[in-house]
Amino acid sequence: MKRWFLGTLATVLVIAVLGAVAWFTPLFSVRQFEVEGQEHTTEAEIIEASGIRGGENLLRLDYNKAATQVYELPWVKEVKATYSLPSTVRIAVEERTPLVWIARPEGIALVDESGQPFVIAEPPMGTVEVSGAAQGSLPDLAKIVEVAKSLGDQRPLVARIDAASPRDIVLELHDGRRVRWGAAEDNHDKARALKVVLSQEGQEWDISDPTLVTVR
């Protein structure tokens, strides 16, 4: 019994010593960062936002706090911060996907899939301008984004979505044609009708009722 007790005590002491070494010595200090998933945000911006600095102890860092701080960067949609012994901090991000853009006094605001404007920047290729009174209302803008999402691979053909309201939407194509979408509803059926329209002649189409497409 005494031998068992002494053996257990020795094991506990060894674990305690190893824990102290890991916690208080530079053995597990930060010497490397691995950042992945970023395209529009630089690695340096992500590391700076995390608040983690080289030389800090890996095991004493608050990775939830670091992830929360990186999440504040405008392009970041999701982020996870972890570590890999003996000296690496890993930060994985997923960036937002801009679908449309709107003109603001401060510049061009990119809008993501949720309908949320998130950054002032030049619009990437394939994004669509939204104009009209509806773009000034976030709930209305979210409905217009649903229209843009439904366009799928036809979206690059659209230069502008003009929306006086969520019930009065017109698509202006790069080739000069105009398509009256009508209300931001039945979007899937209207997108299929649009695909048919694009293969036909005619400058102005009305697909507000996708079962009764008209041209003039």
Rank of each mutant, 00 (worst) to 15 (best):
D153V: 08
P210E: 04
A159F: 00
E204H: 09
D186F: 15
R177W: 08
G202I: 02
L212Y: 09
A142R: 12
E172R: 01
K195C: 04
D189I: 08
I207Q: 02
E204N: 14
D162F: 12
D162T: 07
D168H: 11
T211F: 12
K190H: 12
S199R: 15
Q200H: 03
H174F: 07
I169K: 09
S199G: 15
G152P: 13
S150W: 00
A183P: 15
A142G: 10
D168Y: 06
Q154W: 02
G202P: 02
D153A: 07
V213W: 06
A163K: 07
H174W: 14
P156G: 09
D206H: 05
L171R: 04
P166F: 13
R216I: 00
L173M: 02
A142E: 12
D186W: 12
Q203I: 05
V197H: 07
D189R: 14
A163R: 01
T214P: 07
D162V: 05
D186G: 13
V196P: 01
A163E: 04
L194K: 13
G202N: 04
N187C: 10
D153Y: 05
H174Q: 10
R178L: 06
Q154A: 04
V147G: 09
H174T: 05
T211H: 15
V215I: 13
V215M: 13
I161A: 01
A142L: 08
G182L: 08
V179C: 04
K149W: 03
P166D: 13
R192D: 14
W181E: 04
A164Q: 14
Q200K: 11
T211W: 11
V158P: 10
R180C: 08
I144K: 06
P166T: 13
P156F: 09
P210D: 09
R155H: 01
L212P: 07
A191W: 11
L171E: 01
T214W: 08
R155G: 02
K149A: 03
V170K: 07
